[in-house]
Computed example of a mutant assay.
Amino acid sequence: MSFTVNLRDVTLKYGDADALADVDLTLEAGKIYGLLGRNGAGKTSLLSLIAAFRKPTSGAVLVGGEPVWENAPIVSRVALIREGGDFDDSDTVKATIETGQIRPDFDLDYALKLADKFELSLKKKVRELSRGKRSVLAAVCGLAARAELTMFDEVHLGMDAPTRDAFYKELLAEYMDRQHTVVLSTHLIDEVANYLEEVVIVDRGRILRHEDVETFQGMGATLTGPADAVDAVAAGLDVLAEQRLGATKSVTVSARPDAATRERAANAGIEIGPVGLQDLFIHLTEPGKNGA
């Protein structure tokens, strides 16, 4: 069975407010996705629907071609790991890890190996863990679940930089060893950009963009040089942002300049550079823009 995810005309309401509205989204199986959005954009709501933690107000949420809501055979192969984990604080780390065996493909040996690698004390109570170690415990449980669809919702929060780097590398190694579908919801965009195949941007409850990483990388550009020359070359282009320092100016445009514009820029002494995924995300979701 292909674990493709399909959301068709999905709306999720909290009271009278739309957490998600008219969402159409397809995530093909066997890829690593980045799920990006500002706080309150709807990322966690979206993941909760896919994991059957919540039922949509309207529309269909399908995993593997089947409705996911109250579908135990499908849900058992989907793992949503949230920041800090959903743990019983009175349990030990070892007991918490062993609880993962309720999942059909949970790999206890791998989980214990990861616990040792990330220096998790098996005897400690969950409530005794620091925020960072609690996040590590959540990550360990998610990796060892060996689910067909694994979603990490800000699970890196609290981890220090070396631990986050080790987590990303372990996630990639596990993905290469056993190709499955991974969704990373994160604010640390530049850290994970090199691991992603496709990116979904959620903005104000709607899907703003869903593209492969290469498309995003080719979307924008920065023009840097003498202010007057930059203004002349950027005239008519969609300018997302601009900065000025003395006589030098830098503008970010939404599309890579064509050959004629690049030639004009070179003749005017203007440097053209790429726009990082994080900067592009910030510009695309800036309050006041039209959004989806």
Rank of each mutant, 00 (worst) to 15 (best):
R77L: 08
K13R: 14
D18M: 04
E271A: 15
Y168C: 05
T96N: 15
V183N: 02
D258L: 08
T4E: 13
T261Y: 00
H283L: 01
A41T: 03
K289D: 00
A115S: 08
K31M: 09
D228Q: 15
D24Y: 07
K117P: 00
A232H: 06
L35D: 09
N6D: 13
K43V: 04
L129V: 03
R244S: 14
A292E: 14
E271L: 10
A144F: 01
P287R: 15
G273D: 02
E211T: 02
F53S: 14
T285F: 11
A21C: 11
I282M: 14
I32K: 10
L7T: 08
G276H: 00
K117Y: 05
A259P: 05
M1G: 14
F53C: 14
A229L: 07
I50C: 11
A166P: 00
E70H: 06
I189R: 11
K123F: 02
E198V: 02
A193I: 01
Q101H: 08
A51N: 06
G291Q: 14
V140K: 06
L35E: 10
G218L: 11
T186E: 09
A51E: 07
D153S: 09
L137W: 06
L25W: 07
A266F: 05
I74R: 15
G65L: 11
A161C: 04
R244E: 14
K94E: 13
R82Q: 15
T92M: 12
L12T: 03
R82F: 09
A17L: 12
S121N: 15
T215I: 10
D107C: 05
A60N: 12
S2H: 13
L157G: 01
I201W: 02
E170V: 08
P287D: 13
G205H: 13
A41P: 01
L35V: 09
H187C: 03
K94I: 10
D279I: 01
R204L: 10
R82D: 05
V239P: 00
Y175S: 09
A292R: 15
K133N: 14
N6L: 14
T57S: 15
H187G: 08
G40I: 02
G40Q: 02
Q217G: 13
T44F: 03
N194V: 12
I189V: 15
A292I: 10
V23L: 15
A21R: 15
L49G: 09
N267K: 15
A166G: 01
L129R: 08
D107N: 05
L277G: 10
A147F: 03
T57M: 10
S45A: 10
G15Q: 12
A173D: 07
A79V: 03
D91C: 14
P162M: 03
F281T: 05
L25S: 10
V199I: 12
L277T: 06
L49V: 05
L108C: 04
V192Q: 04
A166L: 12
A266L: 07
A111G: 02
F3R: 06
V233M: 01
R164P: 00
V10Y: 10
K55Y: 01
R244L: 08
H180F: 07
D24M: 02
M151T: 07
L149D: 03
Y33S: 06
P162V: 05
D231Y: 02
L122E: 12
Q179L: 13
A221I: 00
I282F: 13
D116G: 15
V78G: 08
Y175K: 10
D258A: 14
